[in-house]
Design a binder for these strands. Structure first.
Lengths: 190, 190, 190, 190
DNA sequence: CATGAATGAGGATTCATTCAT
DNA sequence: CATGAATGAATCCTCATTCAT
């Protein structure tokens, strides 16, 4: 008797996650180029070939991790869904962001390592990622508008840069004083 | 007539620079892993084998670029050499930094791409780099002390993070409003 | 209610044909090596594993196609079954042959592609095929004997070669003037 | 002291030939798909990687063999270079052709195996080969014109088909009566 | 010192075949 | 009987590095 469609679906969903998680961990720890498909398969407890039944290539695996990771991470932002951030929400937003940074360290390591490194993701994909982040940035611009900042766009760029900088320094320094820095960030931005 | 020792020395120094410059450019543009020794040799106009008479490996080549680049870039900092930055000097320092960022884009691209990417430089080397940057950071801490900031170390970390964030965003976005952002940075730090 | 034995048998025979037809089409169009079991299963609308309940391997599938195809094609030859071809019958035979060529293009493509290609069918099988064709050739030799040709065997080899040459050229050239060439063949052979 | 350019050139020309010859032999004997790069390298006495310094891929290696083989084989045709074949020359031409068939058995085996097999050479290349053979066919058409044949084009197609058929049958049957068949071919065509 | 031919370990990917369900 | 997930050997190709000249 063959497995039912539902059983197969479950297997696939679950194994897909195994692969993604293993790959994320290894990519983040060892780097994309330095991690081999064999590494990932071993870590995920599957045969090398099976990866190719879930992803067409190592590259697509990376892309899937990046995109789906982004979706997982952002799905809880802007609870009102009105696209407008109240100062209260901005605070929550930043707290949330810093929480996620802490919890999804591997994702963010991979994210920065890969976006700042030429020759890993192509331009098309880079633009796709930027497009995905666009609404977030727009929301923040509106927030600064509402706050009455001189040049809201510039302020957003500043905020974005600041947060990126905090992130990358935190990711590679286990003694980074994240909480205290967060207070400085909040003071500067909210 | 054989070349004199001095001539030979000059040739070596010059050819070494050719290799370093070619490698820097290619590493920055195509990424470290994606750039081959053949690429570099071709770009530098030398034979592949010759590279190995200047550097023992691709890895050592990268390390040399990183270290010597750092030295080139910082040799003009802190003109008084007293280790203390006056506010005036801090301004100059930041201006200088942003100038260098603009002029040595390739270096910084490589620097960030490589530091944030695991599996390229080993931990020993990472620590060496940090050690090299240490005096700079100390100077900045002292500056904030002199300025009477609450927590000078924290402020330095904040400054460092902010500047890193500005840098990486500038490096990958040709429309980045660097000058305007610089003003915001100065306002916040000086 | 379980299926009766006869129903099962019918299903098996029919599904077997589905597989053979799909494989024939794909082998002929894409080549034996380039066609995967997955391709065939998909085209036949069955699961990959099922193929192995009808054929022990990809190779055996190919052999079955070749042999059964031959039988299908030749079962109508020599209607008198006396092994002697009258000139009238020779004409019919050639006409028949050319008709079959037109109708079973896929089979012939596969046949030639596979016979002329080393490393696909083993020598044992090659000889089996030749053995199968033997009676046909003998019949033709007898025909030339009866016709009073000098060297009937040689004439058969000539005929065989000529027809093979016509076939392969026709199979790969959609503008091949098959009918006109057939007349030349008849003029030369009958 | 590095090798001189000329030395290198010699090495490359010679080694290229080694590779081509090994590949031709193996492709012809074992088939294109069944022959691995490792096989070829071993047979040619070189490391696997070296092949890729001479040919960009297995496919390009095959193409080179096919094209250069054709050139080697045809370079002596039509000695007058006037594009017109006298009956005397037609005789020589056919004799020549049959000689070549005998001497370059591997080439012809490969040629037929590969042209009649889908999925090995792409359509672009197939057309290139046909284009290369075009002048030959034109010459033969002119010959039949001069001879006063009814439909010279058709006669050329017939000749071409006949010769192809003779070739493939000879190539796979060591008892093929090539010389006697040649006489029949000459009788029919000249 | 300089060259580039040569090496071969290593890595991504494919696919016939097996087997648990 | 039927499914398709899983396996892993096999294959093409790359590239840092070596070395004869």
């Amino acid at each position: 008797m063959p497995r039912t469609k539902i059983q197969n679906e479950q297997i696939r969903v679950q194994k897909r996650m195994q692969i993604i998680n293993s790959a994320l961990e290894l990519f983040a720890q060892k780097g994309y180029h330095t991690t081999t498909i064999a590494d990932i398969a071993k870590h995920a407890g599957i045969a090398k070939g099976l990866m190719y039944s879930y992803f067409t290539s190592k590259e697509e695996l990376l892309h899937s991790i990046l995109i789906e990771g982004y979706e997982l991470i952002t799905e809880k932002f802007d609870p009102n869904h009105d696209g407008i951030l109240e100062p209260q929400e901005m605070l929550l937003f930043i707290n949330d962001l810093f929480d996620k940074l802490n919890n999804d360290r591997d994702y963010w390591r991979l994210y920065f390592s890969v976006t700042l490194q030429p020759g890993v993701i192509d331009d098309y994909f880079r633009k796709e990622m930027i497009k995905k982040y666009k609404p977030l940035f727009d929301m923040i611009i509106k927030y600064f508008e509402a706050k009455g900042v001189d040049d809201p766009y510039l302020e957003m760029v500043f905020a974005h840069s600041l947060i990126d900088g905090v992130f990358i320094n935190f990711l590679y320094d286990k003694d980074y004083p994240l909480d205290k820095i967060k207070q400085l960030v909040i003071k500067r931005l909210v």
